[in-house]
Amino acid sequence: ATNIVGKVKWYNSTKNAGFIEQDNGGKDVFVHKSAVDAAGLHSLEEGQDVIFDLEEKQGKAYAVNLRIK
Rank of each mutant, 00 (worst) to 15 (best):
G40W: 05
Y62A: 07
Q58H: 14
Q22P: 15
I51W: 08
V29Y: 06
L66M: 03
D28S: 07
A17I: 15
Y11A: 04
E56R: 12
L41E: 04
K15C: 12
D49M: 15
N24T: 09
K33V: 08
A38C: 09
H42V: 12
D28K: 08
R67D: 03
V31H: 01
F19W: 14
H32I: 06
K60V: 09
G25D: 07
E45K: 14
V29S: 02
N24P: 07
N16C: 12
G47T: 03
G6D: 00
K15R: 12
D28H: 09
I20A: 01
L66G: 00
E45I: 14
N12G: 03
A17S: 14
L66D: 01
E45N: 11
V36F: 05
I68S: 07
S13E: 11
A61R: 14
D49S: 14
V36Y: 02
V5G: 11
K9G: 02
T14C: 14
G59E: 06
A35Q: 09
V5R: 15
V5T: 15
N3D: 11
F30A: 05
D53L: 02
S43T: 14
K15L: 15
E55P: 01
D53N: 05
A17R: 12
F52I: 03
V5Q: 14
L54S: 03
V8G: 01
Q58T: 08
K60S: 06
K33P: 06
L66Y: 00
A39D: 02
N12K: 08
N16Y: 09
I4T: 04
G40I: 03
E55I: 14
Q22N: 07
V36C: 02
L41V: 07
K9Y: 03
V50H: 00
E56C: 14
A63S: 02
Y62R: 09
K27Y: 08
F30D: 02
I4W: 06
D49I: 15
L44F: 05
D28L: 14
D37A: 13
I68H: 04
G6F: 01
F52K: 00
D53F: 02
D28I: 11
A39M: 07
V64T: 10
I68W: 05
G6V: 02
K60P: 03
V5K: 15
K27F: 09
G18W: 10
E46F: 11
F30L: 06
L54D: 00
I4C: 11
V50D: 00
S13R: 13
S34W: 11
G26L: 09
F52M: 02
A38I: 08
V64E: 04
I20M: 03
S43P: 09
Q48C: 08
K69R: 12
V29E: 00
W10P: 00
S13P: 14
F52L: 02
G26C: 09
N3G: 10
A61Q: 14
T2E: 08
G47R: 05
E56N: 10
K15T: 10
L66Q: 00
A35I: 06
K69G: 11
V8S: 01
Y62D: 03
I20H: 00
I4M: 11
V36A: 03
D37K: 14
S13A: 14
G40Q: 07
F19N: 03
V5I: 12
G26S: 09
F19Q: 07
N16G: 15
D53K: 02
N24A: 10
N65K: 06
Y11F: 09
I4G: 03
W10Y: 08
A63D: 03
F30H: 05
R67P: 02
F19E: 07
F52R: 00
I51E: 08
A61N: 11
D37S: 12
E46V: 15
S34C: 11
N24H: 10
N65E: 03
I51G: 02
D37F: 13
E56H: 13
R67W: 04
H32N: 10
Q48M: 13
K7Y: 05
S43K: 12
E45L: 12
L41R: 05
T2G: 06
F19A: 07
V36D: 00
G47I: 02
D49A: 15
H42Q: 12
N3R: 07
Y11C: 04
N16S: 11
K27V: 10
V29P: 01
V50P: 00
V8Q: 00
E45S: 13
D28F: 09
A1K: 14
G59V: 01
K27M: 10
A39W: 02
E56I: 15
E21K: 15
T2M: 11
S34E: 08
V8F: 06
V5W: 11
K9H: 05
E21G: 11
N12M: 07
Y11K: 02
K60W: 11
S43W: 12
E46G: 12
D37T: 14
K69E: 10
H42E: 12
V64Q: 04
V50K: 01
I51L: 10
T2V: 13
E55M: 14
A35T: 09
G47H: 05
Q58N: 15
G25N: 08
D37G: 07
G59N: 08
I20D: 00
R67M: 05
F52C: 00
A38M: 09
V50T: 02
N24D: 09
Q48D: 10
E46S: 15
A61M: 13
F52N: 00
I51M: 11
V5Y: 12
G26M: 10
K69W: 10
S13G: 10
G25C: 08
T14G: 11
T2C: 12
Q58R: 13
S13N: 11
V36I: 11
G59T: 04
G18P: 01
D28R: 09
D23E: 14
E45M: 13
E56P: 03
N16Q: 14
D23G: 14
S13C: 15
D28E: 08
A17C: 15
V64L: 04
A38W: 06
F30K: 04
I51Y: 08
V64F: 04
S34L: 09
E46Q: 15
V31P: 00
N12L: 08
K57I: 11
K33M: 06
K33H: 08
K7W: 08
N12A: 07
A1H: 13
V8I: 09
L44I: 07
K15D: 07
G18L: 04
E55N: 08
N3L: 05
A39R: 02
G25R: 07
I68P: 07
K27Q: 11
T14D: 11
V50E: 00
D37V: 15
L41T: 03
K69L: 14
A17K: 09
L44Y: 01
V29K: 01
F30E: 06
V8P: 00
L54A: 03
N16I: 04
G18K: 01
D23N: 14
N12D: 13
L44K: 00
I68E: 04
Q58A: 13
G25M: 07
W10R: 04
R67I: 07
K7S: 05
H42I: 12
K57L: 09
V29I: 12
V64Y: 04
D37Y: 14
F19H: 04
A63T: 02
Q48G: 04
A17D: 04
G18D: 01
V29Q: 01
F19S: 06
G26R: 09
L54P: 00
A38Y: 06
S43A: 11
V36H: 01
K15E: 08
L41Y: 09
T14Q: 13
A61L: 14
S43R: 12
I68C: 07
I68Q: 05
K27G: 11
V5S: 14
V8H: 00
G26Q: 10
F19L: 11
V5P: 13
K33F: 09
S13Y: 11
K57T: 10
E21Y: 11
K7C: 08
D53M: 03
V36M: 09
A17V: 14
E45W: 15
E46T: 15
D23M: 15
K69N: 11
A35C: 04
E45D: 10
E56S: 10
Q48I: 09
A39I: 07
L41K: 04
G18C: 03
Y62M: 10
S34G: 08
Q22A: 10
A63L: 05
E45H: 15
Y11M: 06
D23R: 15
N3H: 07
Q58D: 15
A35Y: 05
G40D: 06
K60E: 07
Y11T: 06
T2Q: 12
L41F: 10
N65R: 07
H32G: 11
A1L: 13
K27R: 12
V5M: 13
G40T: 03
S34M: 10
T14H: 13
V31L: 07
G40K: 07
G40N: 08
K33C: 08
L54H: 02
G40V: 03
G18H: 02
A17P: 01
G59C: 07
A17T: 10
G26N: 09
H32D: 10
T14M: 13
E55T: 09
H42A: 13
V36S: 02
G6E: 00
N3I: 03
Y11L: 11
G26T: 07
L54K: 06
E56G: 06
A61F: 15
K9L: 06
A63R: 00
I51V: 11
L66N: 00
A17G: 15
K27S: 10
E21W: 10
D49V: 15
S13T: 12
N24Q: 09
K27D: 10
V31Y: 03
A38P: 02
S34I: 08
V8T: 02
E45V: 14
F30N: 03
V8E: 01
Q48W: 14
K57P: 03
V64S: 06
H42C: 14
Q22M: 13
D53Y: 02
N16T: 06
N12R: 08
V64R: 05
L54R: 06
A39E: 02
G40E: 05
Y62I: 08
G18F: 06
Q48T: 10
T14W: 12
S34A: 10
A61P: 08
D37L: 15
R67S: 04
A38N: 07
Q58Y: 14
N65Y: 03
K33Y: 08
